[in-house]
Design a protein around this nucleic acid. Structure first.
Lengths: 196, 196
DNA sequence: GTCTATACGTAGATAGAC
DNA sequence: GTCTATCTACGTATAGAC
């Protein structure tokens, strides 16, 4: 393997390791309580080297939030434009969101944290944009469902609001310290907000 | 006024001012991003004097979280033991919780933050205890409602989970940066989770 | 690419004068 | 009770050697 190639590989591995460990720590302790040296130790490199791969701690955080947002945004976009009835797509979306909450709890907790705590301004912008898009996708989907008579005849903005609030609240509750073991709610239960 | 009396009065005023400004700042920026000197400046006293009234920053935070939890806990306890049908009490509780979210958003946001970010261990214990009690009160109330045939015949633990998740998610959404203006959901909408 | 050493700033907390 | 000055610790980020 050529040297440049090998370096590129090292670079990717290091960055991935930093992002992975930083994400875990940010979720556990929050942004400002996580030190660069914690991240470095967890990823198995010196703290100075972290700055070889990322310019600042905020940049690491921003990259992590952006990656967390992406799949959730894609899921709602896919539900909005996919094929099948609106109800089917809402159901599939709900299953997908609950699956994410269960199998990758960090993803949603990170979004929740970034939403309710002040963050670097770039991240604030990411979160605001995220909220707008999620909301837009859900409302469009709900309106389509209402036209087909499948979705309750209430204000679609209100339903979208409640629905996504519940999803985030579920992620939050599962992140509670020393919480009792609670199973995830069933998709049907969450869909009671919506169905006609 | 006697000197001792006057000092006592000063003490109470100072403590109240510190708690009030600290709460605002903690909600806005989070615990570790809020400096003692920020609090002191906002409350109009020197940063050294803050330590005359509270031993540590964590102690201030703990006092604030404890005060935020109290009214929410009381509301669910009152709903559990109050008079009237279970449905009536659930409805009144929902109105009360949504009123709190709207009129004192900081209260719920503070709880949400304390839940999803690592906090001093005393606060973790407060939050865990809070979760247990809220959950217990809601489940008891729901079971009573089910006996009367007023509440949907689903797992009461699941309904309680979803209900409180939604409440917290609503508070969270309203705290979003640069969010579009959204009205609060109507109590009826939230109660759709519950009613038979 | 990697590490160690360090500069620089700042935050929590204390001491002592008024 | 109140302030200013200060101690101490630590975290980010950089520099320079290997």
């Amino acid at each position: 393997m050529a040297r440049a190639e090998k370096n590129e590989q090292i670079r990717e591995e290091r960055q991935a390791a930093i992002l992975k460990e930083a994400r875990r720590l940010f979720v556990q302790r929050g942004l400002s309580a996580t030190k660069i040296s914690d991240i470095a130790a967890a990823a198995g490199l010196s703290h100075g080297l972290v700055y070889h791969y990322f310019p600042t701690k905020d940049a690491i955080y921003e990259a992590i939030v952006a990656r967390a947002i992406e799949p959730v945004l894609e899921a709602t976009a896919a539900a909005r434009t996919g094929s099948g009835s609106a109800t089917d797509r809402l159901r599939a979306l709900t299953v997908e969101l609950l699956r994410t909450v269960e199998q990758e709890p960090d993803t949603m907790v990170l979004i929740v944290q970034a939403t309710c705590t002040s963050t670097p301004s770039h991240v604030d912008a990411l979160i605001a944009d995220f909220g707008e898009k999620i909301f837009g996708n859900l409302v469009a989907l709900l309106v389509e469902g209402q036209r087909a008579g499948e979705v309750a005849d209430a204000d679609p903005e209100e339903i979208a609001f409640l629905y996504f609030a519940a999803v985030q609240g579920i992620a939050l509750t599962l992140a509670m310290p020393r919480r009792r073991q609670l199973g995830l709610p069933k998709p049907e239960s969450l869909l009671r907000f919506i169905t006609a």
